[in-house]
Design a binder for these strands. Structure first.
Length: 707
DNA sequence: GAGCACTGC
């Protein structure tokens, strides 16, 4: 650590100061290829500060992660000898440490996007640096598109710098009309790459063998092993411990084996930062959290399985999945680089070099092509950029036609856009909220029914849900369902249970000990509390009265609230409703493309005397694991569903995507072309779908007659 | 009766 700060004047980037300043002076957009250790994150802002760019405005630097924004800002303040929060500051969610004097501002890309809602031309900034753009977060990609538009408007007084990786620097340059690309070398030690001769039959076994070989044959230095997930990590940790223990005493040095992944409690994560005792080698078995988010010192050997777990989204079915996929070359190189931070290292790739060359994709599929875009589309529509339409929006990598259509249909169903694709006043309010559109819509509907305080809690919990409820051990899962302490949703469903849990925590004065007793993740619960507070502050502007959690009520009043909440969820999740099959507990989703799905076994949704689930449910998420499941499910009334069926019949996707102008069409090159409005066929209204919805309506009437 | 890579507003 001390080494790094004393070597500060040698940072490679400083030798390029003149060149960088000159290029920025002459060009509105510059791409900087800065390898690890080049010092770009801390130095670019200071170079521009020295060259006077902070006189006419703020130099803003985005980071994809909160911790990075904070630590880099702290570092720069220290180097400039100023107090953090004054000339140099940072802004992340829940925490704004800037002042009127701030000239260099580090912020997460999400925060910069939010800022553009109130100031779409970023007028207070003289320079915007999009750092780590090669990570291609959804937010960075949207910002890249906005910046491309902005350079045309503010070419005289705005400078944009984009830092990227070697493999896609030219692509970014091309996107910005062939802007200059500057290469700044990094400060990594050489890393020798060792490939396997063959593909492993089991990369778990192969990692184990390689790790032991290193331990026996190689000089001291820690080993970082990249695996895909918790399961494999736990297995490898225990096998490795066994094998190391069985080695002959004194034949080699001691060893400690540590797991490292996101769902470990923070105190366990910290263990990887404490240096090992002397004559002891550490094996750190990690997910890709160790690829960028956490840096472990002392690593000299890296073992790369070549795989990563990656979230996917299928826009035509609305289904999420988590798949094990091959890493990209960028990722493989990033992993290898983890071995060369302190001295020359070695990286063992558990696959042949031909696989690296011929099979691995150059770069990871950007998040924008793997996510639901409802939120991003609504956000862009709310910016009211008169000169662009969402479907003309120029992305570095366009999302698919299906994905944009999926987003538009979803937004239409929840009244955020009208049938022509124009944003509604409801949509405008929704865009103000830092939530997925369905949750924003639920809040607005709940406000009409007088249950906003409860809906705020549900929205906050759902936006953090994965890290909230007990982990995967069987005992704790049982507790969720039958535990004496935790509420059960009164049979109405998971949304109601989540509300009840939070209210119970409130009654226990937000006690941390209470969370631990009930196996609730402390970090997650505290996050929920912060989110709820933030949502209250935003909603307070449009709402009269108190939004406190504590609203002492009678049993009858609570029952009414639960009913109204489920009704509000029905409006917010109009395209996430499902109808039960007549004879068993399977469901089919109601929507543009019906899917056969099941209630996730962890649900607390109740059944009737015959053991049957409710006729209609609203769900928060569809996930495909072993089978397609609905996660977080609550019962809804069929009479709330009927008006939505009517709306589904009316959707005309061509009109929606026209945005009032024209029709979209996907060309052979995958790019989206705009056709003149006259070419829109008037009767292209999803005929097959219509008959299916008609059938659903008939089934509904039959049910009604039976009752 | 199944299981959660990593971020972020």
């Amino acid at each position: 650590m001390a080494d790094r700060s004393s070597s500060l004047p040698d940072l490679p980037i400083l030798q390029f100061e003149e060149k960088i300043a000159e290029t920025v002076e002459k060009n509105p957009v510059v791409v900087i290829i800065g390898e690890t250790g080049s010092g770009k994150s801390t130095q670019l802002s200071q170079i521009l500060h020295r060259r006077g760019y902070t006189k006419s405005g703020i130099v803003g630097v985005t980071q994809p992660r909160r911790v990075a924004a904070v630590s880099v800002a702290r570092r720069v303040a220290q180097e400039l000898g100023v107090k953090l929060g004054e000339e140099v500051g940072y802004a992340i969610r829940f925490e704004d440490r800037t002042s009127e004097r701030t000239r260099i501002k580090y912020l997460t890309d999400g925060v910069l996007l939010r800022e553009s809602l109130s100031n779409p031309e970023f007028n207070e900034y003289s320079v915007i640096i999009l750092d780590e753009a090669h990570e291609r977060s959804l937010n960075t990609d949207i910002l890249l598109g906005l910046m491309k538009r902005l350079v045309k408007i503010r070419s005289s007084n705005l400078r944009i710098l984009i830092t990227s990786a070697t493999l896609d620097g030219n692509k970014v340059s091309k996107f910005f009309s062939d802007c200059p690309v500057l290469n700044v070398p990094g400060k990594l030690y050489p890393v020798e790459i060792v490939y396997s001769r063959e593909r492993p039959t089991s990369y778990l076994e192969s990692s184990l063998r390689t790790a032991l070989k290193i331990h026996v044959q190689e000089p001291e230095g820690d080993v970082l092993i990249f695996m895909t997930g918790q399961d494999d990590i736990d297995k490898l940790v225990s096998k490795l411990e066994d094998e190391v223990r069985s080695l002959e005493e004194g034949s080699c040095m001691d060893a400690i084996v540590l797991p490292l992944h996101g769902s470990l409690p923070p105190e366990s994560q910290v263990r990887v930062f404490t240096p090992p005792p002397p004559n002891c080698r550490r094996f750190i078995v990690a997910t890709n959290i160790a690829e960028t988010s956490l840096t472990v010192d002392g690593v000299v050997y890296v073992i790369d399985s070549g795989y990563v777990k990656q979230r996917g989204y299928n826009p035509s079915t609305g289904m999420y999945s988590l798949d094990v996929v091959q890493v990209s070359k960028v990722q493989a190189d990033q992993r290898a680089g983890r071995a060369g931070r302190t001295r020359p290292g070695k990286c063992y790739r558990l696959y042949p070099s031909i696989v690296y060359q011929d099979e691995l994709p150059d770069v990871t599929v950007p998040e924008i092509q793997r996510s639901s875009l409802a939120g991003s589309v609504l956000y862009l529509k709310s910016l009211d950029l008169s000169d662009i339409d969402i479907l003309r929006f120029d992305f570095l990598d366009s999302p698919s036609h299906d994905s944009l259509e999926d987003a538009l249909k979803q937004l239409y169903l929840i009244d955020a856009i009208d049938e022509d694709g124009s944003i509604t006043s409801i949509g405008r309010t929704m865009a103000e909220l830092p939530l997925e559109p369905s949750l924003s819509r639920t809040l607005m509907e709940a406000n009409e029914y007088g249950c906003l305080p409860q809906a705020l809690t549900i929205a906050a919990v759902l936006s953090a849900e994965t890290s909230l409820l007990p982990g995967r051990s069987k005992g704790t899962e049982k507790k969720r369902r039958h535990g004496p302490d935790l509420p059960d949703g009164s049979g109405l469903g998971d949304h109601i249970q989540l509300l009840q849990i939070y209210e119970e925590w409130d009654r226990n004065d937000y006690d941390i000990g209470w969370c631990k007793e009930n196996n609730l993740q402390v970090r997650g619960m505290l996050f929920v509390k912060d989110v709820r507070k933030q949502l209250c502050q935003i909603m307070q502007k449009t709402v009269k009265g108190t939004l406190d959690v504590r609203t002492s009520k009678s049993r009858k009043e609570r029952r009414d609230d639960y009913r109204n909440l489920r009704k509000a969820l029905c409006a917010g999740y109009a395209n996430q409703l499902a109808e039960r099959m007549t004879l068993h507990n399977g469901y089919r989703t109601i929507g543009f493309k019906s899917q056969l799905v099941q209630v996730h076994p962890s649900s607390v949704l109740g059944t009737d005397e015959q053991g049957m689930y409710p006729d209609f449910v609203v769900y928060h998420e569809l996930v495909t694991t072993s089978r397609p499941f609905m996660r977080n499910v609550s019962a809804v009334d069929m009479k709330w569903v009927v008006p939505i069926l009517g709306k589904l019949e009316k959707v005309n996707v061509n009109k929606l995507s026209s945005g009032g102008y024209s029709q979209i069409e996907e060309g052979n090159d995958g790019k989206i072309a705009i056709l003149p409005k006259e070419d829109v066929s008037p009767d292209n209204v999803l005929p097959a779908n219509e008959s299916r919805i008609q059938a659903a309506r008939e089934r509904f009437l039959a049910r009604k007659a039976k009752k």
